[in-house]
Structure formats: C-alpha cells, structure tokens
C-alpha cells in the first residue's frame, strides 16, 4: 500500500502546505473534483482543532500520512499533544437563529459530513485522526 507522509509544525500558517499535500494525494487517487472541496474542509477543520486543542499552550508537530488504495483514500493526522477527540464534540444546532447561534462547534460536524468515514484513537501517546474518502460517494445535503 503506497503511503506518503509529511511532518510539519502544528501551526495555522502550515495549513496551505498540508492542504496542498493532501490534494496531491487526492489527485493520484483520482478523487472527483467535486469532492476535493469537502476533503479540503475536513482536513482544515482537523488541523485547526489540533492546533487549538491538542497544543493549546505549546508548540508541536503534526504528521500527515496519505494512503491510497484501489477503493479509498485514507488521511491520517497524528499529533503528540494532549488527548483530544474532536469527534466527541456535540453537533451544533444548525437550525438556531443568529442570536442563538454559538460560535464554533462546526468543525467536528464538517469532518463527519464531508468524509465517508472518520475515526479517532489515542495510540502511543498520540492523537490519531483518520479520515477516509471513496470515489463516487457524495455528501448528503439536508
């Protein structure tokens, strides 16, 4: 199974580089252009949350690995920050009015909505978030 990986500082100013790396992998996987948008969003939300919550007061590294198989594109984001699972955050109230709408809460929701499968595990002192994308799948609009 071919795998490519990069290691970068877990900082927002590396976001463009991370997204570029992941999109190159998506091109090799031949992910549809229409789904690259969702891939970009899912990866951005994951990176933003790692920077904010896994490394709230410290700096650290972020490893991004892409595995391409015939059936799927798997993106694995690992950090050695404090234990943090974005998938445990509750979904936002998407029907609330502007006065009641909370700032935040959308990141984990977008990760779930725009990927075909997502999982979190704490492994060897690292947070490991795994996103899976398939060709031909489509997001469901409300």
């Amino acid at each position: 199974m071919p795998e490519e990986r990069i290691r970068v500082d877990a900082k927002l100013d590396r976001l463009e580089e991370i997204v570029g790396f992941v999109e190159d992998c998506a091109d090799r996987f031949r992910l549809e252009d229409s789904r690259k948008f969702g891939l970009n969003i899912a990866v951005e939300e994951a990176v933003v949350n790692i920077c904010s919550y896994a490394y709230p007061d410290t700096e650290g590294m972020l490893d991004v690995a892409c595995r391409v198989t015939d059936e799927s594109l798997v993106i694995e984001l690992s950090d050695s920050g404090i234990p943090f699972n974005i998938l445990t955050l509750p979904d936002p109230e998407t029907d609330a009015a502007i006065e009641d709408r909370e700032i935040g809460g959308l990141g984990g929701y977008f990760i779930r909505q725009f990927s075909d499968a997502v999982s979190y595990t704490r492994r060897d002192g690292m947070n490991v978030l795994t996103l899976l994308f398939r060709r031909g799948a489509s997001i469901e609009l409300p």
Binding site: I41, E99, R101
Partner: peptide
Amino acid sequence: KSLGGLMLLANIGGAVKDVFAISGFGTIF
C-alpha cells in the same frame, strides 16, 4: 444586527452553497 443594520448575502453558488446548506447558515442570513 446590534447596530440595527442589515447584512445580505448574494451570489452564493457551487460548493460554497453546499457548506451553507449543511451548516444551516443558509437560514441565518
């Protein structure tokens, strides 16, 4: 809103529109 003003969104299309639909922001503005 707190200033008593108004903010309207125009010309939203494509994948950006999908993000508005999924987030529920299409009904906020």
